[in-house]
Amino acid sequence: MPSSLQPAAERHSVTVLGLGPMGRALAGAFLAAGVRTTVWNRTPGREGDLVERGAAPAASAEEAVAASALTVICLVNYDATDAVLRRPAVTDALRGRTVANLSADVPDRARDTGRWAAEHGIGYLDGAIMTPTPTIGTPEGVFLYGGPEPLYLEHRPVLDALSGSHTHLGEDIGRAAAYDVALLDIFWTSMSGYVHALALARAEGITARELAPFAQGIGAILPPLFEEWAGDVDDRTYSGEGNPLTSGLSTMEHVVHAAEGHGIDASVMRATAALTRRAVDRGYGADGFTRVTELLDLRRGE
């Protein structure tokens, strides 16, 4: 049944599948906004306080999705979502309804799920949550979506109940997951660098608390560089003015030398230095660090 023909109560309600920390936060935000919310979890027992706040518990996933025009699912990955959504009874119950998948996985898996949904007459939006659980239901929450724009606009009033910013990235089902993995790359690479710095500092008798204020200063340098370097990469200018690769390579080698002198694993920095040296050896020593993006793309034959 097309959503426009579904009862108004269904169109102004939501089902949340998955009641881990993020799923519970999503359900709680919907409830706080006054959206009629049905909940279900693979392991019973997590819905208690949500039910006390007004959520309707469902005995099965098929019963849950039948209660609303929009189902929001948030599980650990797409193996888990497939195990729920692709069960025949659940698939049948979803026909003519919409799924917004806010689980985390890779773009190809998102596109595969989009094809599966289309084959079974199910509306599908693939999304990514870019902020932690405490931000859900607050202005600080950030949500990204890929998929048919009319479908996104149709369900935007319910999704807006989560508060925060909501951005539709285009028709490509895998677009949100692509942003997600790229942004997670920034986060985890940065966190790897930070914990390595803390280990190196500790070896030199500097506590983590002593280093932290100066680490925050390094962090403050990054946002303008993100903007500047984005232009370098898109325009393929790779400017090294002020900090050419030859200079950067020297500082990387200092980190490696100091870390390994204390018996600290420096494999991540060694890998970065090796990429930088390869660029220098190919004649790019006067370029900026953004030149390394070309070497990382193995399809380009660099």
Rank of each mutant, 00 (worst) to 15 (best):
L184S: 11
L183S: 08
G170T: 07
T138C: 03
E140R: 15
D172V: 14
T189C: 11
L151P: 10
Y179N: 07
P150V: 09
H155K: 01
L225K: 07
E154S: 09
P139T: 11
L159Q: 10
H168A: 03
P139A: 09
G147C: 11
L183M: 08
L183W: 08
Y152V: 04
Y145G: 08
G193S: 04
A208G: 13
A177W: 07
L200Q: 02
I221C: 08
L162E: 03
A199N: 13
M191P: 03
A220H: 05
E210F: 05
E154R: 14
P139V: 04
I206Q: 06
T138I: 04
R209A: 15
E140D: 15
P213T: 08
A128I: 10
D180H: 13
S165P: 02
A215K: 00
S192F: 10
E204H: 14
E228I: 12
P224A: 09
V142H: 06
R202D: 06
D180A: 08
V142N: 05
I136S: 03
F143I: 03
I218D: 07
Q216A: 13
I186Q: 09
S190Q: 11
I206N: 01
E149C: 00
A220S: 07
L162M: 04
T133Y: 03
G141A: 14
Y179P: 04
A201D: 01
P148C: 02
S165I: 04
A230V: 01
L200K: 00
F214N: 05
L144A: 14
A128G: 15
I186N: 08
A178S: 15
H155Q: 03
L159N: 13
D172C: 01
R209Q: 14
T138P: 13
T131S: 15
R156H: 05
G174S: 13
V142T: 12
H168N: 02
R202I: 00
P213H: 10
Y145M: 11
G193F: 01
L153D: 03
